[in-house]
């Protein structure tokens, strides 16, 4: 067997599973969206014509972009602190960062219900401090969805970036210092450019994750803050509009695939050790 053939043979079981349980369903889902009697693209025309559906799409985009941006900033700062701490503290910090990932998404979203609710911890505290005179309604807003989403995805960003930052040799920042760079300049000129590929990977993970999320918008956004994931569920399971649901799924696949492709192209372009 040639090495090439052997590689194929080894990956055959996995390929088969992916084809059977991912490729086929996705293709058949996509196929149904083109089967409209009014023409193959009628479903899509209807989607992009509908004010409501476009609002949901834009809201989802907005939440995903804001979540990604905040996660990048918070995650980078945290990852920096973690990567720079001594070995023992570092493993404690990483465990602390990963811990939320060990509980389910639903549990973590419920926690925010308790915090942000009318009689929740946050309102109680603000009332007690006298900062507000009556409880704010924070649940079922874009704010509540975004904050829960950030909480959900920051650990992922931290994990991605700690690895990237740790892989930047200390020699490089020391060499920069030796050449006269202040700590801030060394960070801007050396650390940041070298962390770009990691930032892109982390951003793609968070963006696609938050764009396609279901449980968090369901619990913290409800009907009022419908997002693509919850909208899809509603179409499929409440109104049993399978073709409509498939169209939503297709739009989601296109958005995430485009993001992944554009970002990986960008990552290759910005890769510090490329051409």
């Amino acid at each position: 067997m040639t090495p090439r053939l052997r590689a194929w043979a080894l990956s055959a079981p996995a390929l088969f599973l992916v084809a059977l349980f991912l490729g086929l369903p996705v293709l058949s889902t996509l196929a149904t969206t083109f089967g409209d009697p009014k023409g193959p693209f009628a479903q899509y025309a209807a989607f992009f014509d509908s004010r409501f559906r476009m609002t949901v799409l834009w809201r989802t985009m907005e939440v995903a972009v804001i979540t990604t941006t905040i996660s990048v900033i918070v995650g980078f700062m945290t990852a920096w602190v973690v990567a720079k701490s001594p070995a023992r503290i570092k493993s404690l910090l990483i465990i602390a960062a990963v811990f939320p990932l060990l509980t389910g998404v639903v549990v973590r979203s419920f926690a925010w219900l308790i915090i942000l609710g009318k009689n929740g911890i946050l309102n109680d505290t603000l009332l007690w401090l006298g900062l507000i005179s009556e409880p704010l309604s924070m649940l079922y807003t874009q704010f509540s969805v975004t904050i829960a989403m950030v909480y959900l995805f920051v650990p992922l960003m931290i994990l991605t970036l700690v690895g990237v930052l740790e892989a930047i040799p200390q020699d490089l920042t020391e060499a920069a210092a030796s050449l006269g760079a202040t700590p801030a300049a060394a960070f801007r000129q050396v650390v940041l450019p070298m962390a770009v590929p990691g930032l892109i990977v982390g951003s793609v993970l968070v963006f696609t994750g938050s764009f396609t999320s279901y449980a968090t918008p369901q619990l913290l956004g409800g009907e009022r803050q419908m997002m693509m994931g919850t909208f899809l569920y509603q179409r499929a399971m409440v109104t049993f509009d399978w073709v409509g649901a498939s169209t939503i799924a297709a739009v989601m696949v296109v958005v995430t695939l485009t993001t992944v492709l554009v970002m990986s192209k960008l990552a290759r372009r910005l890769n510090p050790v490329a051409g």
């Binding site: 020699d171 020391e174 210092a177 030796s178 070298m194 510090p272 050790v273």
Partner: peptide
């Protein structure tokens, strides 16, 4: 270190991988 008239050349060379040779020298 950044204010010492001393420069250290590292065993690993510690070249900046994201910069060209020219930019490394100009750093």
């Amino acid at each position: 270190p950044n204010q010492r008239a001393v420069n250290m050349m590292f065993q690993s060379y510690a070249l900046f991988p994201h910069l060209t040779i020219w930019d490394n020298i100009a750093f």
